[in-house]
Design a protein around this nucleic acid. Structure first.
Lengths: 221, 221
DNA sequence: AATAATTTTTAGATTTACCTAAAACTATTA
DNA sequence: TAATAGTTTTAGGTAAATCTAAAAATTATT
C-alpha cells in the first residue's frame, strides 16, 4: 500500500496535529522523524500527489480523510503489537516501543484482526493510549496533565505522553504506573515540581516528568 | 544489521545450496528472487565485500560461515513466526508464508527468544521444516520424496518442499497433511503419478505434487 | 515599512536497489 | 576447434529517500 517511509510521515503528522493546534509545520515533522526540512518538503509533495495530505507551500499541512485513516491504521497496529509484547511475551512497558515501531509496518489486515482477537480486543496499550478499532474509531481519553492539576485533587494515572525507556524506568521506580491512585499536595513555586501522594508515600516529581503523565481526575466529592 | 534485501539474498542462496549441489549460480538466485541476473551480480559484489559469501566471477557463490549464520537466523525467525500464526492466531498452513516473509525481517534478538519461549520451543514449523535453535543448530529430517518411494513401502508425511497456497490447499483436499500415514501402491508408468493409500482411501497423486511431499519411511517389518 | 531572523523550498548530489542492452565469458556440440 | 548457445558481467540509467548549501518566502522586530 504505502511505503514504510510514507507511513512514518503520516503517523508523525497525525501525532503532531493532535498536540499542536493549526497546520503541521515542516520543521516539526523533520524534528519528529530525525531528518532534514529539505527531505520533508520532498515527501510532502509526494504525499500531496497521493492525496494523503493537503499541502500549501510555506503554510504547513493537514491530513486528508484518506491520510488520517492510513495514519490511524498504523497507530492501531503499533498499539496492538505493544499489547502483544507486554501481555504475551512479558516485555516491560519501557522495552516495547522500538520493536512495535518495526512491527507496525507489517502489511496484512487479516493479521491485525486476528491479533486483535487473540489479545481479547484490548482498548488501551501498555502506555494507556487508546487502540483504534477496525474502523479507526476510539474514545479519546478525558485526561489532564499532572502538572496542571490543582492542589487537593485526586485521580488515577491513565497514561503517559512519552514512551522513551529512561522516562518509563524512572516512573516505575517512583511507583507512578498506570492505574495508580494519586493525590496532589501542591506545586512548588520555585521549580514547578509537583508534590503528591502515591502508595501512601509523599513524593516530589519534576515539572518535566509531570508534563508527560496523564491523569483522570476523580469525581469531586 | 543487514538490509531487508541482503537478508533475502542470503536466505535464497542458503535454500539453493541445500537443494542443488556445488556453488550457487547467479541465474538460480535471480530466479528465486524474481529479479534479473544483472541485479544479482550487483548484490553479490556487495555481499562479497561484507564477507557474507565467497564469490568468484562466473563461478557462482557459496556462503561464508558468517553468511550462513545470518541466513539461518532469518530462517529461524521465519519458521517461528509461522508457528505463531498457525498455533496462536489460527491461520491455516497455506496462509502463513507471505506474512512470515515480512515478519522474518523484524530485527530484535530478544524478541525472537521470547517468541520461541512463548511458543514452547517448537522443533518444526507448520510445513514440517525444522526450526534452528538460538545457535543455528537443528537436525535435518531424514526424509524421502514421495515420488521416489518404492511400491509396497509405508511411511508418514513429515513435510512439504513447496509452500504456495494452491499447492497446500490441494494437499488438504487430498488429506495429505503432516503426520498422516501413507502406503505406496505403485507408480504409474505412463505419467509418473503415484498410487497410494491415505485414510483408508486409494488416491492418485501427480508426479509434480509427489515431488514436493516429504515422507519418513516406516522401519521395514 | 524596512530590516533581521526564522522557516521553508529549490538545486544539485549521494546511496540503495533495481532495470535494459550489450559485451564477455563458459560450455556444448558439430 | 570453431561456431553456437547459454550464462554472467559491465555499462549506463531510473526511482526512492536522503543529504548540504543556497535561494526564497514568511514572520518578527525595530
Amino acid at each position: 500500500m504505502h511505503s514504510f517511509t510514507e507511513e512514518n510521515y503520516l503517523k508523525v503528522i497525525y501525532h503532531i496535529s493532535q498536540t499542536e493546534p493549526g497546520t503541521v509545520q515542516t520543521n516539526a515533522i523533520a524534528n519528529g522523524l530525525n531528518t532534514k526540512a529539505a527531505s520533508v518538503t520532498d515527501m510532502l509533495k509526494k504525499l500531496s500527489d497521493k492525496q494523503l495530505i493537503d499541502y500549501i507551500k510555506y503554510q504547513g499541512v493537514t491530513l486528508t480523510e484518506k491520510g488520517k485513516a492510513a495514519a490511524i491504521k498504523v497507530i492501531r497496529k503499533h498499539r496492538l503489537w505493544e499489547v502483544f509484547l507486554v501481555d504475551k511475551l512479558k516485555f516491560r512497558w519501557d522495552e516495547v516501543h522500538d520493536i512495535a515501531e518495526e512491527l507496525e509496518h507489517i502489511n496484512s489486515s487479516i493479521l491485525v484482526e486476528r491479533l486483535d482477537d487473540f489479545l481479547g480486543f484490548p482498548k488501551r496499550d501498555p502506555h494507556g493510549d487508546p487502540i483504534p478499532d477496525q474502523h479507526g474509531n476510539f474514545e479519546p481519553s478525558a485526561h489532564i496533565h499532572l502538572h496542571e492539576i490543582a492542589k487537593g485533587k485526586t485521580g488515577i494515572i491513565i497514561g503517559v505522553s512519552e514512551h522513551s525507556s529512561p522516562f518509563l524506568i524512572h516512573l516505575e521506580k517512583l511507583g507512578l504506573t498506570i492505574g495508580v491512585a494519586i493525590a496532589i499536595h501542591g506545586i512548588t513555586a520555585y521549580d514547578g515540581s509537583v508534590e503528591l501522594m502515591v502508595n501512601a508515600q509523599k513524593i516530589n516529581v519534576s515539572r518535566k516528568v509531570a508534563q508527560h503523565i496523564l491523569v483522570k481526575l476523580e469525581e469531586t466529592e
